[in-house]
Design a protein around this nucleic acid. Structure first.
Lengths: 202, 202
DNA sequence: CCATTTTTGTATCGGTCGGCACAAATTAAG
DNA sequence: CTTAATTTGTGCCGACCGATACAAAAATGG
């Protein structure tokens, strides 16, 4: 057992509460007062446990990636074909983006698209994660080419960029309060392009 | 001539400079110090001329709508068919989003997607403008149906939602520094869906 | 010239920002 | 029970936030 006084709160629990605040209001829009209130702890406890607001944010984003943010990764790995993977990626994220009782849209997309020059490193951090998603989608498309369910010669780079653009756009629409059915219709429209750009191999 | 001492700066000029700051850093990311420095005036002059930071932002957004933000409106009105209108909307905005010497992406989309509860009205303001764009796109599609260049029975609501989602997504991609060619390829992919969802009338 | 009006720069307002000193409180080890 | 270690709550730090008070400066009309 640790030597001194024990921590009176659960680290994972208060981190989840912090994540919810960042998710709702973004990095700059979340003040320390809002965070400590939501987490139910005082500022010294926060700093002793997480170091700084920025480090708390980074941990929050990592936690997000393990839960709500895991949809994309799972869809890309679990589905048998590239088309099914992209379709599942869109559908699963739409479900997550519009889930009642939590902020709409993706934390990684919405929390720091712009901001003050002082917080440029935070923006770089989430942008890198977005880049990772784009790369993952492209890798999945390339695997589809290797597997034979995507035609050889398909511009997987362009196709990945397209679906990531739609996915990120869906976060904005969800945050704007657009109805789930509208997002689903958008995903269907995006998938309609698939059969033109990467028609099912013979 | 006005009675007292004359204003030592051009109102439109300093407003354009303020717009550039909001465009680059967003609403909350732009401090009064940054604004006054960029505008080349002191804070009392700013308040005497524009009233408050929020009103300065609203005027900046209106100015944006008259310049960089006018691409969408013009594309929707000038093109002869709905498909050409949507294609021009995407292409012209991509050109604008990636223009050298100015912030990438759309001010209306990027400047206040999330933020502190105190600034909810600012977010509502830009969200309303985004809603107007969606409505304008749908109206253009409906006109296409009336004109006969869009098949009767086309779900114009869904199609408008799709292209607005792509358009907003493009702002994020542009701000993330994606190359113009990639955005263009994305627009091409989005247009590939057109011929499936709204095939050219016989 | 004078009187009036408006803008200017300086200096500062109260409030909040992120972050921390400090001592009381709480725990395990000796 | 004492000692050492760690967390707790209180209170506050300097810096910056958006926004103004104030008087000097600069313009007009008389």
């Amino acid at each position: 057992m640790p030597r001194g006084r024990h921590r009176g709160f659960d680290r994972d629990d208060v981190l989840a509460r912090a994540m919810a605040v960042f998710w709702e209001h973004g990095y700059e829009g979340s003040s320390m007062a809002m965070l400590t209130t939501a987490m139910g702890i005082n500022s010294p406890s926060l700093y002793a446990t997480f170091g700084s607001k920025e480090r708390l944010f980074r941990e929050s984003v990592e936690l997000y990636g393990q839960h709500a943010g895991s949809r994309t990764r799972r869809a890309l790995t679990d589905q048998p074909t590239a088309r099914a993977a992209v379709a599942a990626m869109l559908a699963d994220n739409i479900e997550e983006y519009t889930r009642p009782g939590q902020p709409h849209g993706c934390l990684v997309v919405l929390s720091a698209p712009v901001g003050a020059p002082d917080h440029a490193d935070v923006r770089t951090f989430v942008r890198t994660l977005r880049d990772d998603v784009r790369a993952a989608v492209r890798d999945r498309l390339d695997r589809g080419v290797a597997d034979g369910d995507v035609p050889a010669g398909t511009d997987t780079r362009a196709l990945a960029a397209f679906y990531v653009t739609v996915l990120n756009g869906l976060s904005l629409q969800a945050r704007d309060g657009r109805p789930t059915a509208e997002l689903t219709a958008t995903a269907d429209a995006a998938l309609a392009a698939w059969d033109v750009l990467a028609p099912a191999a013979a």
